[in-house]
Amino acid sequence: MTDGTPKKTRGWGRPILIAFVVFALLPIGGVLSHAVAPPLTTLLMVGRAVGGSGLDYRWRSLDDISPRLVDAVIASEDARFCEHRGFDMKAIRKALESNAEGRKVKGGSTISQQTAKNVFLWPGRDWIRKGLEAGYTVMIETVWGKRRIMEVYLNVAEWAPGVYGAEAAAHHWFGKGAADLTAAEAARLAAILPSPRRYQAADPGPYVRRRASRVQAAMGTVRNQGLDACVVGSRS
């Protein structure tokens, strides 16, 4: 007796199941490994390097990066970083309401989302990538925690063409290590993050100077209100 299923069809069952399991486990394995080990490289780094931008990527522990830079990127990129679980629902609602009214606003992407995209995915705005980004964001928030997310973010973000991570950025723009950044220098680095291939931190134009001034002022609020406590701990 047979079940009527052709042998060739039945023969595909096991390989398909194995492929599905492998496909499902690869993202989990990547998240678990990068919880303790630095990414060797990212798709963005490889793509930029192939395109001729070069590659300067220097990993540093969060303890070797100035806390001023932590305050600067929280002030600039994600003021509720320590409050949310990967997605800033207030910013998302505001963006949806504004888009419905025909007004263009910042999309509300958090540091956690940017980290997920930078480490595991490719540049772009397609829905497949956004869906994967959401999944990775949930996983790194669950497995890594806030301090590790910030550490990875500061190390893989692009700060100039072919320049990745706070250490490489500090040397590229200011000729010093990331641990020695001043508040003004940290604010300038945060100010160019949205368009690091367009703007300069060392000799900024009027736009970056104005933006950096606002970021530096907001850094005081980050410190005073403990908005960075999930990364640097409480301040006495």
Rank of each mutant, 00 (worst) to 15 (best):
residue 25 L to R: 01
residue 222 V to E: 09
residue 65 I to M: 07
residue 38 P to N: 02
residue 196 P to A: 02
residue 113 Q to M: 11
residue 95 A to Y: 03
residue 224 N to H: 14
residue 139 M to R: 03
residue 149 I to S: 09
residue 10 R to T: 00
residue 69 L to S: 09
residue 193 L to C: 06
residue 230 C to M: 12
residue 107 G to E: 13
residue 75 A to W: 05
residue 161 P to K: 12
residue 59 W to H: 10
residue 104 K to Q: 13
residue 3 D to N: 15
residue 180 D to N: 13
residue 139 M to P: 00
residue 235 R to L: 15
residue 175 G to R: 12
residue 65 I to V: 15
residue 48 R to N: 04
residue 132 L to K: 15
residue 85 R to D: 15
residue 102 G to S: 09
residue 133 E to P: 02
residue 139 M to S: 06
residue 50 V to A: 09
residue 110 T to F: 07
residue 27 P to K: 03
residue 91 A to G: 10
residue 166 A to H: 00
residue 71 D to R: 13
residue 130 K to Q: 08
residue 126 D to P: 11
residue 154 L to K: 01
residue 125 R to V: 06
residue 157 A to D: 07
residue 212 A to I: 09
residue 130 K to C: 01
residue 134 A to M: 06
residue 126 D to I: 01
residue 83 E to Q: 14
residue 10 R to V: 01
residue 117 K to I: 11
residue 182 T to E: 11
residue 133 E to L: 00
residue 43 L to Q: 13
residue 207 Y to F: 14
residue 229 A to F: 15
residue 184 A to N: 12
residue 144 W to F: 05
residue 62 L to C: 05
residue 82 C to F: 13
residue 18 I to L: 01
residue 149 I to Q: 10
residue 224 N to L: 09
residue 79 A to R: 15
residue 12 W to S: 04
residue 128 I to W: 14
residue 164 Y to I: 08
residue 108 G to P: 06
residue 177 G to A: 05
residue 125 R to T: 13
residue 225 Q to Y: 12
residue 156 V to C: 07
residue 96 L to Y: 08
residue 23 F to K: 00
residue 19 A to C: 02
residue 229 A to D: 13
residue 167 E to N: 05
residue 232 V to P: 05
residue 108 G to H: 01
residue 64 D to E: 10
residue 115 T to R: 12
residue 208 V to P: 03
residue 193 L to M: 13
residue 119 V to D: 11
residue 200 Q to N: 10
residue 33 S to F: 13
residue 142 T to H: 04
residue 121 L to G: 10
residue 47 G to E: 07
residue 172 H to L: 07
residue 178 A to H: 02
residue 32 L to C: 07
residue 50 V to P: 00
residue 168 A to W: 06
residue 165 G to H: 02
residue 178 A to I: 01
residue 63 D to H: 11
residue 199 Y to E: 05
